[in-house]
Each structure stands twice: as structure tokens, then as C-alpha cells.
Design a protein around this nucleic acid. Structure first.
Lengths: 166, 166
DNA sequence: TATTGTTATACTCTATAACTATA
DNA sequence: TATAGTTATAGAGTATAACAATA
């Protein structure tokens, strides 16, 4: 009998996969990644990149902000934001204008077209959500959401504000 | 009254965060990322990198495999695997030897020390799992696992073999 | 000629550091 | 001198292509 290496690779892989599938954390990581990947793919099919949504969502709430504010809100380096805004501005989804009070500042605002696109993106996310969690019933989805919210409160407090103003 | 940009950045951010926290998919992505990040941090603290675990786990099941087999199993480019194995070999956690039957092949096998480290890594993952899901009760964890498994069967079948041999 | 493992090259992405204009 | 936005530089990480040895 030989050393014969590539003996049963498939079984090895299956065994490891089975082991990992036992881990709730691993499932969480894989599914989270799958959801994100799908969201990115959908957005790119529609001609957007990931951060476009973030920028538009921030502006959608408050209508205008300086670049440094946006960068801070998205934990993004100001230099990275430039290209993002260039692209959005070129498509006329946002507008930049100098702040007359401090001509160093650019005041960024969302346009009517930008608002439309934001709504479209929100619809896309909602549709994805609907599709992704379709294997679960409404009540099961509610349970899942509640459990995840409790975990997020511990592990990712920044994303889940505990205080619910007004 | 002025254009005054940076008016209420905090409220904007909170509003967006609140919107995102409504999305189960977003929570899934954030928590999955948090779990992975924590696992990576723990592994690196112990002197490992992420793929070390994967390689050792594969070898732990079947004891030996060729490099191309491992690369295939991990969906890794063979050229990337080289550095990983170099590192593991240097620490004497795996061993490479030429296959006498086909001298192009390297037969990779796990050492006794490698097996010990693998067990240690498994323990670390288990401890992280325990800690990460501590906010939930045992029954709630079981429910979460079941729901995630159902979702994975749809969205990530490769990671969750439906057939349960023996 | 094809394949295994390896090394070298090129490319992308991002973080850092300079730079311009305003204050 | 300090700050907002921009541009240029450099570094890490990775994918692709070339390579040497075997078959």
C-alpha cells in the first residue's frame, strides 16, 4: 500500500464542513457575508457602489452636511470620500457648493434625483431582505430579529442605539 | 439665517443607524463580521493566522493531502497556500514530503504538535462561541442555530451538507 | 505536452502624507 | 498657525502569469 495522498479529500472536506456547521458563530459569519455580498451585487447591477447608499442615506435624513461630517459619520477617511462624492456629483445625485460663511467648506446636499435613487435603493434592500429570509415564517423572522438585536446590543452597540428618542 | 451645514450630524447618524437596525440582514452582516473579527483577534493573539485553522482542520480529518487538494478544499489559490504551509512547516505543525509515486507532489501531513494546536484552536473557538452568545439562554441559542441552519441550507448549501451520513 | 509546486510580476485597495485655499 | 478638501505617494494584500521539476 502506498502513501497515496489525495485519498479521500471529499470526505475530509465534508467532515470539516459538518464541524463548522455546528458552530452558530460560523453560520452567523457565513450568512452575514452572503447577505452583504448579495446586497453589493444587487447595488452594482443597478450601477451603484456600496458607500453610495450610506452617503445618500446620511444626506436623506438631514439634507445637507459638510464632507468632514459625512466622513466622520461613516468612519471614512476624508480623502476616500472625495472620489465617492465626485461620482455621485457627476451623476447629479448630490451637489457640492461652497459655504459662503467659510469658503473652505463644501456643503453637500442631496438632489431630487438623489432622493429618488435613495428610495430605489431602499426598495432594493427591502426586496433582498424579503427574499433572503423567505425560508422563515413571519413569526420566526420576528424571533430571529429579536435575538440578533439582543446580541447586537452587547457586541455592536454603535449600530443599535438603545435610547429611542421621541 | 445661514446655510450652516454641520447642523445636526448626530441626529442624522442616529436616524440612519435606527433605520439599519430595523434590517435583519444588516444585523446579520454586522454580527457575523463582529464574530469573525473576534475570532481572528483571538487567533492572532495566540500566534496564528486565520487560515492556519482551516489547514489544520482539513489535515486533522484525513491526516494527509496534497497541496492542490488542500487549495481546492479551501478555495485558495495554490500559490497562496505555499506561504501558509511554509509558516506551518517552520513551526513544525505540518510536514511536507515528496510523494515517491509522483515526485511532483508534496504529501502534507499534520504532526503531533499540529494536532495539539488544532485542539487548542478548537477550544478557543468554543470559548468564543460561549462568550459571544452568552446574552441568550440555552433554548434561545438552539432556536437561533436552527433558524440559521435553515437559512444556510438555502443561501450557502456548500457549508451545510444536507445529507448526514451514518 | 501536461501537471505540481514555486517564484516573480502586476494590479487593486487603502492609509498616510503632502499640498492648496482659506480662516 | 490651523483647518477643509484635494491630490500624490507608498504599502499591504492578492490574483495572474511565468518558471522548474517531474510525469
Amino acid at each position: 500500500m502506498s502513501i497515496s495522498a489525495a485519498e479521500t479529500p471529499v470526505k475530509q472536506i465534508q467532515a470539516v464542513a459538518r464541524e463548522l456547521a455546528q458552530s452558530t458563530g460560523f453560520l452567523l459569519a457565513r450568512l452575514g457575508f452572503a447577505f452583504k455580498a448579495q446586497a453589493i451585487a444587487n447595488a452594482e447591477d443597478a450601477g451603484f457602489e456600496v458607500y453610495d447608499y450610506s452617503v445618500l442615506a446620511i444626506l436623506g435624513e438631514g439634507a445637507r452636511a459638510t464632507q468632514s461630517t459625512i466622513a466622520q459619520a461613516l468612519s471614512l477617511d476624508p480623502s476616500r470620500l472625495v472620489a465617492l462624492l465626485d461620482s455621485l456629483e457627476q451623476r447629479e445625485l448630490i451637489a457640492r457648493q461652497r459655504d459662503p460663511l467659510d469658503r473652505r467648506r463644501h456643503v453637500v446636499s442631496i438632489t431630487a434625483a438623489g432622493d429618488r435613487e435613495l428610495r430605489r435603493l431602499r426598495g432594493m434592500v427591502q426586496a433582498l431582505e424579503e427574499d433572503f429570509f423567505a425560508p422563515l415564517g413571519a413569526d420566526e423572522r420576528a424571533v430571529l430579529h429579536e435575538l440578533l438585536t439582543r446580541l447586537a446590543a452587547r457586541h455592536d452597540p454603535s449600530c443599535c442605539p438603545l435610547s429611542e428618542p421621541d
